[in-house]
Amino acid sequence: MVSKKIVLHFPNKLVDQPIVYKLVKDYNLKFNILKASITPKEEGLLVLELNGEEKDYKQGVNYLKESGVKVQPLSRDVVRNEAKCTHCGVCVPICPTAALVVDPLTRKVNFYNDKCIACELCIKACPVRAMEVHF
């Protein structure tokens, strides 16, 4: 079994297609929507957590790519601009998944992007705008 978080970009021609339905029906994948937004006539963005057999997951992602959906791993979604971060720590209690944690020795804030669910709460909580969303 695999469990992966991915970011899907739907070009406008696909926005009205039942793509996620096919992931369930044809590839037996369970999905959990972490974020969704559609700009009519432009593009759709969907952040999904997919669960299923490794083989099914690979085939499902292939299906997405062949359909014209751009697929990215979620870890590239929220990034920290290292030059801007002052390591104050105000983001730490805001982060719901402990992806932002103070190192007790260096007193610097570590960002574990594998734990990040791209909820974006840190984006506006950061006084120096060091947390950035990259689509």
Partner: peptide, 10 residues
């Protein structure tokens, strides 16, 4: 849970 506003490492 606590959060800092002032940066100790800086």
């Amino acid at each position: 849970p606590t959060g800092g506003i002032s940066s100790y490492s800086k």
